[in-house]
Structure formats: structure tokens, C-alpha cells
Nucleic acid binder design. Structure first.
Lengths: 183, 183
DNA sequence: GATTCTATGGTTAGGGA
DNA sequence: GTCCCTAACCATAGAAT
């Protein structure tokens, strides 16, 4: 910069603002960007300093989502959602047996059809696959949420326990299901 | 306080610390408490100032959950879980064709094996099914995340577009897949 | 454990680019 | 939209309560 041209920069130091919706569209936008960044940084510092798991999700007024998570947003959300769904140690013995089956490694560790070889894909394939995975997430999540809403709506008074055998069958089907060999 | 007794408080002003796990158990505990509070305050200010919807979930090292949400944690989580798919308008034409297929109602609205009749279930069955759905979410999410991490790691320079046909095949398989009639 | 205290280090509002 | 800039405001480390 030309020394002669150095104009004294007018410094508008930080001004105190009260915490209410910022009216001016542009100011609000800039503030959102800055403070979102600051919030994520604080969250990151908290997780590092204190070994905490943190997830932050923000929707701007325009509906755009932003998120931060350590170790990942989904990890924290799952932990949270599984915590919230209530104590699972009050289940009947019959159900517990079934849950052990679900938690068995067989189901989760079996290579599924979505375990494809990524390195063989081109750029567009990768992006498409990414999109596809997100769609699958959405499908399962929506089915899960819809079902769970219904579950919550159903009064939990039905004492029939024996019917749980259905799930043993269902699990068997699942185990045999996603075993398609891609290409 | 007795004026005679007013001892000058030795002030230890804030010291710069580097961002790494605080070793000393007690200090970490105090820091967690303070910074968690600060984080929630920042989140609150962001939502008020900018009209944003915010959810923050924190697990301490001891496993205790804390959360903040505006208008509520559940509201934001629900919105986020239904909203995961990102912008699709920057993709190449070849990819876009494929995405249209993905987005086609056929795939998503076809009744899947998890669309079971809830009202026929007993109490334990319902709880078990709920657990099962959460497991399925985890499986798909984890597969998705692992794959997407790899996708991000792969340099997006491969110009081969034609390979995307693989996904047309994959989608066909998917459409025919989950068509098991429960019981 | 949580809260209070003080002096710093850190954050950020309003401009400008 | 993002980045820099400054100065005033704010959060917080360490110690004590």
C-alpha cells in the first residue's frame, strides 16, 4: 500500500448489542456466519479439552443446515437417541434374548451390498454413491421414526409376549437379505 | 464484608492454555462445567440474534448427557434427520439422470419389509421392533459414513463418467430387494 | 461438585475489500 | 457469500468460597 495513501482506518470497535433478532438482513447474515463459526470452535475446544462428545446442529433462517460433531455428528446423535428411548433393562426375558441376537456380530459385521470397492469408481460414481447412501439413510430413518411414533402412540399394555418369535424369523431373513455381490 | 478485613484478592488473570485434554481431573471437570455453560449461551444467542434453529448435545467423559435446543432439541433433530441429503443441483447430467431414478417414488414408496403392522404386536414386540429399527439406522449410517469418508479421501479427478451405469444396475437390484412379506 | 472473583486473552460489531 | 481490521466487550483460568 502506498504510504502516502495510508488513510487512518476508521475503527468501529465492537459495540454492545442486545440479544434479539437482528433486523437488518445483511448484518444478520454476517453475524450468523461469524457466530456459527465461533460456536463450532467452542464446541471443538470443549471436546478436546474435556474429552467430551459434542454435536451441534444449526439451521439458518433460510433453512440451510450446518453441523459439527466430535467424533461425528451421527455418533453423538445415535448415542443420544439410544439414551433417550428409555431404559432397556426393564424388558422381559423373552425380549432380552432377542436383543442379544440383534447385537450379535453376525448381523452387523457381515459384508453388505453397500460395501463396494470405492477405488474402482470415477468421480461421478463416487458422488452418486454418496447421494445414494444418504437416500438410504433417509429411507431407514423415516421408516424408523414413523414406526416409533406409532409405537409411542400404541398403549403399552398388551401382555402377549410369545409373539416376539416373529422377530427371530425377521432377523433370519435380514441376515440372508443384503447379500448381493456388486458387479 | 468488614472493611478492615478486605484483603486484596490475588487475581490470577486468565492464562493461555493450549487446546488439548486437560490432565488434572478436577480442572477438567470445572472447565467442562464452565465451557458447557458458555457453549449453550452462545448457541442461545445465535438462535435469538439470527433466528436460527440450534441443537447442541454434549456427553461428558463420564457419559452424562447434556443438551440445549431452540425451539427444542427434538424439533431440530427431526428436521436434521429428514434433511440430510445435500444440494443436488451441482451434479453432472449423467449423475442427475441417475438421481432422478433414485428420487423416483417407486423406490422410496414401495412398501418395505420394515413396513409391518404395528397394531398386531404386543408390548414387548413393539419395544423390540423399536430397538431393531435403531440398529438398522446405525448399520446404514455407519456404512454411509465410512464410505463417505473414503469418498472424501479419494481425489475427485477421475474423468470416467460412463461407469455410472453401475448404479443403474445397483438401483435395479435394490428395487427388487426388500420385498419380503413379513409373516 | 458448583459459583465467585479478577485480569487477561479471546471474540466479534461494524466497516471495508 | 468470504476475508481483514480495530477496539470494546466478553468468557474464562486459576484460586478461593
Amino acid at each position: 500500500m502506498n504510504p502516502v495513501e495510508v488513510k487512518k482506518r476508521i475503527c468501529n470497535g465492537r459495540k454492545k448489542i442486545d440479544i434479539k433478532l437482528i433486523e437488518k438482513e445483511e448484518n444478520r447474515q454476517v453475524c450468523f456466519s461469524k457466530r456459527r463459526k465461533g460456536l463450532f470452535k467452542k464446541a471443538s475446544e470443549l471436546s478436546t479439552l474435556c474429552g467430551a462428545e459434542v454435536a451441534v446442529i444449526v439451521f439458518s433462517l433460510t433453512g440451510k443446515p450446518y453441523c459439527f460433531g466430535h467424533p461425528s455428528v451421527d455418533h453423538v446423535l445415535h448415542r443420544f437417541l439410544n439414551n433417550v428411548s428409555g431404559p432397556s433393562d426393564t424388558l422381559s426375558p423373552a425380549t432380552t434374548n432377542c436383543l442379544e441376537l440383534i447385537n450379535d456380530d453376525q448381523l452387523v459385521q457381515k459384508p453388505f451390498w453397500w460395501d463396494v470397492e470405492l477405488h474402482s469408481m470415477g468421480d461421478d460414481e463416487l458422488r452418486l454413491y454418496e447421494k445414494f447412501l444418504l437416500e438410504q439413510q433417509t429411507v431407514v430413518t423415516e421408516a424408523s421414526e414413523a414406526a416409533m411414533e406409532q409405537i409411542d402412540a400404541v398403549p403399552h399394555t398388551n401382555p402377549e409376549v410369545g409373539e416376539a418369535d416373529y422377530f427371530l424369523w425377521l432377523l433370519q431373513e435380514i441376515k440372508d437379505l443384503p447379500d448381493i455381490d456388486p458387479i
